[in-house]
Amino acid sequence: MTESPMTQRAMIIDDSKAMRSILRRIVSGLSFETAEAAHGQEALDQMEAGFMPDLCLIDWNMPVMDGYTFITEVRKRPEWRNITLMMVTTESEQGQIVKALAAGAHEYVIKPFTPDAIVEKLELLGLVSKGVLA
């Protein structure tokens, strides 16, 4: 993919390769350039190494560093404040959603989801303009 300042980047953080594959197909279809990480620490390492995402899609339960910790780590860094953080997780109690939002997540998608759900949330976040799939 040719580098262009207009290309938005997404970091997909999930310990399941199958789930990363599903999410990659959805956001690639929205013209995002993607990178993948199997846990929060791996994502932080890639970001330190230079892959600066506009959007992170973040699972909650992962080995090494879970998604909640990842969000709190990202929010400690002022230079990363423009990154949009969206949880995509099976954690579905109201309390967990509140906790993630309080820690700095912008949006929250509960697994299972349909591709439309991801697209609509990205529209809400202003990362995708309406009708991009039309």
Binding site: Y108, P112, F113
Partner: peptide, 9 residues
């Protein structure tokens, strides 16, 4: 599944 559709968290 319906809750995920366009409803802000």
């Amino acid at each position: 599944v319906e809750m995920n559709r366009g409803l802000p968290a």
